[in-house]
Write a protein that binds this DNA or RNA. Structure first.
Length: 538
RNA sequence: GACUCCGUAGCUCAGUCGGUAGAGCAAUUGACUCUUAAUCAAUGGGUCGAGGGUUCGAAUCCCUCCGGGGUUACCA
């Protein structure tokens, strides 16, 4: 925040005062009786109408073309833009004879909100516009917006510094065409999925974000402290264990769009907080869940884009069902030539060495297989593909495979070379579950800082009995990225995490003298680099 | 975290070999009652990310720091 105002900010504050002195409230309290939206007016216009349609519109001035006693304004509302034709003779009134020359031309600026009452017509150049008969100042803008111009869909001087766009998303949304559409599509994806679940009778629920044991995934959690209880609490890394408790409790289909938090790196596909939709359905297995998932994704794509095809970067992805299905063992065989079925840890290490994959001693069998798949296979799956039957060591919450005890009934949905969804036939054998947690403990002792904690209450719930259940989690940010063709997670989050904005500040002389620094030393100290009192310590 | 590039007016960007700051839009003043990246004329606007160094002289060269992008590592 700059303390000194730029020339344009000073002018706008001056205009604000002049509006008040003319008896115009720049921030009126009364509701404005808007009765039409920009794009609707254009869509509903009929050249053959005998009487002109009267409308009342409101929005932000995005550009002005002033030609003496007549002007054109581009007014932007939540749906789009419409041109307003403003003339001196039509908007001046007895009470406000300077409405046009002083108020409109001199005191209003790009960025201000105004309301317009008038009639709809088509200009000589053919553009459907509103001929203003009454202009109301609705809100004065004190900061100049970036000026982005459009012609034939091409943007000129777009506001495109990513740092400023993300830090001041409100500005990005105002001036850059298409940004809002991405976020509207995000909401449509959620609506599509909610409808899909609700139609089937599944219930949307909410479970704790603050958890005493961060369970349900392998990840580094954020930790915080609850003062009244005097205990550490973790921000959830997943909601899986809570949703399964609800299946124990008798719900037969529950889902939650859950904000999860992981204290890991940030880049164009990772934000510290992100959203996962998890759903659990009783009496189903992972085969059922595969069909459910592909139908859900196909529908979401159709609802948002009207087609199953999406362009992401140079790839065209088709979400037409059915998706391909490949077991993990077959995938590794196909992309590396190694058949790892039945291999022990040492043999797997040998394979990794041959494939030039970096490994370390903390890695168990499951992690080694995961590395091979991640390095050599994952990236090949551009079109939606289910990878099935993961090794048991890397799936501690998943039911053992019905035909092979070394594997689990698990699938991941890979799209554009990345994991999008993850699902199991859920492990509901409480004794097996406890043993799997204990295996995780051993991994943790071995040095794996992502191994899962033991959640004894969760085991207790399973001891009361959970019906056979299938569960699935899908990364919402990644899904939205795919369905909107965006390649950075920051483009689908309104406010992605950023380093705090910092300005180099210089402490005042008083702060130095307050800690006993002689006044005449202050300038000297600042000159040699101690620009703050704090910098004198340490 | 590592590597790499970037930071100049409200916005988008030039700035040559180190010689003291430029354009378009926006703003201000004026002309113009159907324009649309409106047009025409004039004017003002800069801690060149911050701090230090080299130099007679630094937006430019060197060092440190801050912020961001890209690549990479961990991860969804």
């Amino acid at each position: 925040m700059s303390i000194e105002l730029s020339e344009q900010e000073q002018v706008r504050r001056q205009s604000l005062n002049e509006l008040r002195s003319l008896g115009i409230d720049p921030y009126p309290a009364a509701l404005y009786p808007r009765d039409a939206f920009s794009t609707d007016i254009i869509a509903e216009f009929d050249d053959n109408q005998e009487t002109k349609r009267q409308v009342c519109v409101a929005g932000r001035i995005m550009s002005r073309r002033i030609m003496g006693k007549a002007s054109f304004v581009e007014l932007q509302d939540s749906k789009g833009r419409i041109q307003i034709y403003v003339t001196r003779d039509d908007i001046n009134t007895e009470e406000q004879p300077e409405m046009y020359n002083t108020v409109f031309k001199r005191l209003l600026d790009i960025g201000d909100f105004i309301g317009i009452k008038g009639f709809v017509f088509r200009t000589k150049m053919g553009e459907i516009s509103v001929h203003a008969e009454e202009l109301t100042v609705l809100s004065k803008s004190l900061r100049p917006l970036p000026i982005v111009k459009y012609k034939d869909g091409v943007a000129y001087d777009s506001f495109d510094d990513p740092e400023q766009r993300y830090r001041q998303r409100y500005v990005d949304l105002v001036v850059n065409e298409g940004v809002k559409e991405t976020f509207i599509k995000r909401t449509q994806v959620y609506q599509s999925m909610r409808n899909f679940f609700n139609e089937r009778g599944y219930i949307e629920v909410e479970t704790p974000v603050l958890q005493p044991i961060p369970g349900g995934a392998a990840a580094r959690p954020f930790i915080t402290h609850h003062n009244a209880l005097n205990i550490p609490l973790y921000l959830r890394i997943a909601n899986e264990l809570y949703l399964k408790r609800l299946i124990v409790g008798g719900f037969e289909g529950v889902y939650e769009f859950a904000k999860n938090f992981r204290n890991e790196g940030m880049d164009r596909t990772h934000n510290p907080e992100f959203t996962v939709m998890e759903i659990y359905v009783a009496y189903k297995d992972y085969n059922w869940m595969m069909e459910f998932t592909e139908k859900m994704v196909e529908k979401a794509c159709l609802d948002v884009n009207g087609t199953t095809k999406v362009k992401v970067g140079n790839n065209e992805i088709d979400f037409k069902t059915p998706f391909k299905r490949v077991t993990m063992i077959d995938s590794i065989k196909e992309h590396t030539g190694f058949d790892i079925s039945g291999m022990d840890e040492d043999e797997l290490r040998e394979v990794c060495k041959k494939l030039d994959i970096e490994i370390d001693d903390t890695m168990g069998k499951g992690k080694l297989i995961d590395e091979i798949f991640g390095e050599k296979c994952e990236g090949n799956y551009i079109q939606p593909t289910f990878i099935t039957d993961y090794p048991i060591e890397m799936s501690p919450l998943c039911k053992r495979h019905r035909t092979n005890p070394d594997l689990t009934e698990r699938f991941e949905l890979m799209v554009n070379g990345k994991e999008l969804a993850n699902a199991y036939s859920e492990l509901n054998d409480p004794i097996d579950q406890l043993e799997r947690f204990q295996e995780q403990m051993k991994l943790s002792e071995k040095g794996d800082d992502e191994a899962m904690f033991i959640d004894l209450d969760f085991v207790r719930s399973l001891e009361y009995g959970m019906p056979p259940t299938s569960g699935m989690g899908i990364g919402m940010d990644r899904l939205v990225m795919l369905l909107t063709g965006q390649e950075a997670i920051q483009e689908v989050l309104f406010f992605p995490q950023m380093r705090p904005e910092k300005k180099a500040t210089v402490d005042t002389a008083e702060k130095y003298t307050a800690i006993g620094v002689p006044e005449e030393w202050v300038a000297v100290l600042q000159k040699v680099g101690f620009i703050t009192v704090k910098s004198l310590h340490g």
